[in-house]
């Protein structure tokens, strides 16, 4: 098996893995494996996975792995990193864990600029429990709990997580969004996130747009179409610069916009 088909840090005994056919988790974990292999840090990584489909990654790698409860992967990895700063902490979680039940942990870890990497899998649905409406479900998208499609006047608009975190991210953070339709690019983003942590600069948050053919009820053609067209239109790919790192520095609190505001 060559490096691009099965990375060296994958645990071969547990393959075929437990994800559904066509699931994007396999591709994100492949990109993560490629990044870990390239940096040769497999002996230092602490990999934490969350509840949801992401928990099926618990036996995926030949890495030290810990699995914890809904959205609490970030504080757990942050705690381990604070006790053992030589470790490389990776918190791997879905959009439900990161943006719904674990949002406060993610926001506070970003505010504190903890030296960990958070990988968020965005497949626009709660996949393990049967495809319910998630914070990232697209407007009009049908799910188990929104059979007529997501109505924005009732359920609101989908959350653009990296944009939100980039707005509060302190200097030295790294925030990016990749997609499983571009695996090499995603591996590069994850590698940059890990490098950011290895250099001790700050938090790295990488969101990966993923696929869920089982709950989207799509065939291979429609799976790629939904990911590359509809999802990528709403969730633009790229790296997001924190206001602190922009030319001119962070916006002033008592700037002109406040004058005469009452």
């Amino acid at each position: 098996m060559s490096e691009i088909s099965m990375p060296l840090c994958w645990r071969r005994e547990t393959k075929p893995h437990q994800f559904c056919p066509g699931c994007g988790h396999g591709l994100i974990l492949k990109a993560l494996g490629m990044a870990v292999d390239r940096l040769q840090i497999a002996d230092k990584v602490l990999f934490g996975c969350d509840i949801g489909c992401s928990l099926l990654a618990w036996d995926f790698f030949n890495l030290d792995t810990v699995r914890t409860h809904h959205g609490r992967t970030v504080p757990l990895i942050v705690g381990a990193k604070r006790v053992r700063p030589e470790l490389v902490g990776i918190a791997y979680m879905g959009d439900g864990g990161a943006y719904a039940i674990g949002a406060q942990h993610l926001v506070n870890a970003t505010m504190r600029n903890d030296k960990v990497m958070v990988v968020i899998v965005n497949n626009t649905t709660y996949a393990m429990t049967g495809g319910q409406l998630a914070p990232t479900t697209l407007p009009g998208q049908k799910t188990e709990t929104s059979p007529a499609g997501r109505r924005t006047e009732r359920e609101g608009f989908p959350l653009r997580g990296p944009e939100m975190l980039a707005a509060i991210a302190p200097p030295g953070s790294y925030v990016a969004r990749g997609s499983v339709s571009r695996v090499r690019r995603l591996a590069r983003l994850l590698e940059k996130g890990l490098e950011n942590q290895l250099q001790g600069r700050g938090i790295s948050v990488v969101e990966a747009l993923s696929t869920c053919p089982t709950n989207w009820r799509t065939n291979a053609e429609d799976t790629w179409k939904f990911l590359e067209k509809e999802m990528t239109d709403y969730f633009p790919l790229g790296e997001f610069v924190s206001p602190h790192d922009r030319a001119g520095g962070a916006p002033k609190v008592n700037g002109n916009s406040r004058k005469g505001g009452g």
Binding site: M1, S5, W10, K15, G24, G26, R184
Partner: peptide, 15 residues
């Protein structure tokens, strides 16, 4: 070109 090997989530293809 190895695109099939790259996009296989199960690493079933090798070129």
């Amino acid at each position: 070109c190895k695109i099939c090997a790259l996009v296989c989530p199960d690493a079933a293809i090798d070129i």
